[in-house]
Amino acid sequence: SSQSQGISSSSTSTMPNSSQSSHSSSGTLSSLETVSTQELYSIPEDQEPEDQEPEEPTPAPWARLWALQDGFANLECVNDNYWFGRDKSCEYCFDEPLLKRTDKYRTYSKKHFRIFREVGPKNSYIAYIEDHSGNGTFVNTELVGKGKRRPLNNNSEIALSLSRNKVFVFFDLTVDDQSVYPKALRDEYIMSKTLGSGACGEVKLAFERKTCKKVAIKIISKRKFAIGSAREADPALNVETEIEILKKLNHPCIIKIKNFFDAEDYYIVLELMEGGELFDKVVGNKRLKEATCKLYFYQMLLAVQYLHENGIIHRDLKPENVLLSSQEEDCLIKITDFGHSKILGETSLMRTLCGTPTYLAPEVLVSVGTAGYNRAVDCWSLGVILFICLSGYPPFSEHRTQVSLKDQITSGKYNFIPEVWAEVSEKALDLVKKLLVVDPKARFTTEEALRHPWLQDEDMKRKFQDLLSEENESTALPQVLAQPSTSRKRPREGEAEGAETTKRPAVCAAVL
């Protein structure tokens, strides 16, 4: 046999249950609850290399294929790409003598399909299967379609040439079993990697079954959420508030809700932002270029202005709740996480202390139980975000031990490091100062900020419009641009040419 590394010779191994799959997660993409704000000051410096380099560890398999027929071997997927077919160049070659004697062998292509993985959001991997055969590759009886790919989820059954000719079961060793999710959700989405997690739940990458488009699904544990919100009269209202707010909003710089499922837990389906959180971008770069800050901040102002015009105060604006559309420097941003939002009543007064301390406005800290506050709290938070983006460190921090965090904020005395700000323009610093004003009545509004000289930049605004146009074009394009080929190089076993392929839609398939 010419099988590559990772293939075992026996096809009769006992199949494990899916609970053996491991679970991976990374930083929070968007969480309903406010958790302790991640610290920006503690960015690790590059460490000196050791005298002796450690040995390379043996790579762990990321997936496993269990053979369902004699003549096929099990495969431990270690590499990122595997070709399957009769050709000797394939990493998994159909060359077992037992297999060659079967009637089905002649229906398999020289290069029938490939399984591979690509880097997705949060640097996690996504597994795909890609059909290159004349007679078809099927996943859970659905045709992939020649020249098309679809994501592979845990426990997928792979069939060759005929939908009933099941050859492998695919085990993704990095994700959960699909069966743990409600059927209504599974009918519409293929669940994938964990993108982030918080005290009350997690955010998962998923794929729409009909279109193969990526989405983010925010899962909120009702049990954990009820415990964490025990002081509230009705904890469920917080989730329902977020859903109702998101459904009503329609702005290019605000995250869109696509679906909602109320089962044992809450499942909020949101558009996916491939670039992750602004927080991670700031930490990764230490600070952002001023031109990049301007492009992002302009969009934040437009989003918050839209919220305020619609009578909504976000109340928890922070870099973790600003998501980026891509890994590119120039990209769209979207505001997310409306769990603490407040729809303005007639009095415009709110007395609930919520939000993240580092970003809270002075009037929030001094008015607990005594007075109210209004939309100006969001403008203060925007000032803190702009400060961080321009400088790479927070204006107020618990680690300045000589003054408490509350006193720093209520006095408006931010930590100004001259040598850092020497590289920032006077106009940018002036806008920061106009937003970090203790008196909410004297603080800049979103309208005033948008009129500030720093943002009178036609090149930046043109760039934003171009990015918007690109997004609109990409969302308007159909996901499947061509029909699967019906040509046949070899006959199917026991049926006429093209008899099955043309009847089945290529579900969740995307043209390369």
Score class of each variant (00 low, 15 high):
E271Y: 10
I335R: 02
E419L: 07
F261I: 07
G372S: 14
K289Y: 11
I313G: 00
E274H: 09
V424W: 15
K281H: 09
E363Y: 01
L249A: 09
D337G: 01
E329P: 10
T370L: 12
S326D: 15
K294E: 09
L272S: 14
V269F: 11
S485C: 03
D280F: 14
G284A: 13
S326C: 12
R488C: 13
N310A: 12
S474D: 07
F387T: 01
N415H: 07
D330N: 10
F279G: 03
K286V: 09
H308N: 11
L302Q: 10
A449T: 12
M300D: 01
N415E: 01
A449Q: 09
L431M: 11
L302W: 07
E500A: 10
K281D: 04
A506E: 04
Q299D: 01
L301F: 07
I268W: 01
S341T: 08
A371D: 11
C379N: 05
R351H: 04
E290K: 11
S469R: 11
K247A: 08
P357L: 14
E500D: 11
E274M: 11
K334R: 07
T292F: 00
N250M: 05
V366A: 05
V364F: 14
I255T: 05
V403L: 05
L344K: 11
K289A: 11
Q327F: 10
D378S: 00
R400P: 07
Q456G: 06
Y298P: 03
K289N: 09
V282N: 00
C293R: 04
D262L: 13
R488V: 09
Y306M: 10
L295N: 12
E346T: 00
L324F: 03
G494S: 03
L365V: 13
G383M: 00
L382Q: 01
P357M: 15
K286S: 08
C354S: 02
G275M: 03
D265M: 15
T502V: 02
I333W: 01
T502G: 15
D407R: 01
T356M: 02
V368L: 10
Q479P: 14
L455I: 10
R315H: 03
L301R: 14
F416E: 12
G311W: 10
K318F: 01
T446V: 10
V366E: 10
V507G: 09
F260P: 07
P395L: 06
Q408V: 00
L344E: 04
S381N: 15
D407T: 13
V282L: 12
L295D: 06
A442E: 11
E271M: 13
G311S: 03
Q408G: 11
G276C: 13
D262G: 09
G498R: 15
V304R: 01
K406R: 12
D280P: 05
L288S: 06
D459R: 08
E264Q: 04
